[in-house]
Amino acid sequence: MDSVTFPQDPICRPYRQLARNARLANARLDRACTALKPGEWEATRTSFFPSLKGTMVHLLDADRYYIDTLRGDLAGLAKPPGSRATAAEFAAERAEVDDWLIDFCEALTAEALPRKISIPWPDRTLTETVADTLLHVFLHGQHHRGQIHSMLSGTSVAPPQIDEFILTDNSEARVEDLQALEWSEARLTR
């Protein structure tokens, strides 16, 4: 909500923008998927994760995994993973994860960016900075949102536009999205 005030370190603005962009793009994809005909969300498609559901669940699980590495002393996610039986159930969990990442990035300071974190990997533990981990999370998300967008082309629902949210002078493209989240244009661009 817009009533929350966070420190606004200008060096951290790109991370805030990427987190907000992910939330808005995910919300559009979630709305598209909840409008699908029965069976389309789970239907086999051409992709590494062979369905819309499979790809979206992979992305959500990855985001939850990285949140666990980023959070440090911060509170984690309020709820464990849901059943994800429907696109609507999935969307509620997706929103919680996105909101956590936004809150994290809105509270981010330049001093926190070089902090080292440990990321358990199958054969070793990676040591990365908060900055590089966040960039990975956002790039990974954009990669899979592109796949989801492409898979929607083969459904009864047209793929939504998902890439224009961070341009300051393109506010007309996001009016409904900001209203749905109860965000102001000022929140998006700070």
Rank of each mutant, 00 (worst) to 15 (best):
V97L: 07
R84Y: 12
T109L: 12
A110R: 14
E96D: 14
R84C: 06
V97D: 04
D103C: 11
A92G: 06
L101S: 07
R115K: 15
I117P: 05
A112L: 10
A85R: 11
A107W: 04
A88I: 02
P114V: 07
D98W: 08
E96Q: 13
A95T: 12
F90K: 00
A85V: 03
L101R: 04
T86V: 05
T109V: 06
F104C: 07
L113C: 10
R115L: 08
T109W: 06
I102C: 15
F104S: 06
T86E: 03
R84F: 08
K116I: 12
D99Q: 15
L108H: 06
T86L: 06
P114G: 10
L108N: 04
A91W: 00
A91T: 01
A85G: 15
T109R: 14
P114W: 12
F104I: 07
A110F: 05
E96W: 06
A87C: 08
E111D: 15
L113Y: 09
A95I: 04
A87N: 01
I117L: 15
R94I: 03
A87L: 03
R115M: 08
A95C: 10
T109H: 02
R94S: 14
F104V: 04
D98C: 14
F104Q: 09
K116C: 02
C105H: 05
A87G: 02
I102M: 13
E93R: 04
D99Y: 05
E106Y: 11
V97T: 14
L101I: 12
R84N: 12
A112S: 14
K116M: 10
A91I: 01
T109E: 10
L113E: 08
A87D: 00
R84S: 05
L108C: 11
E89Q: 14
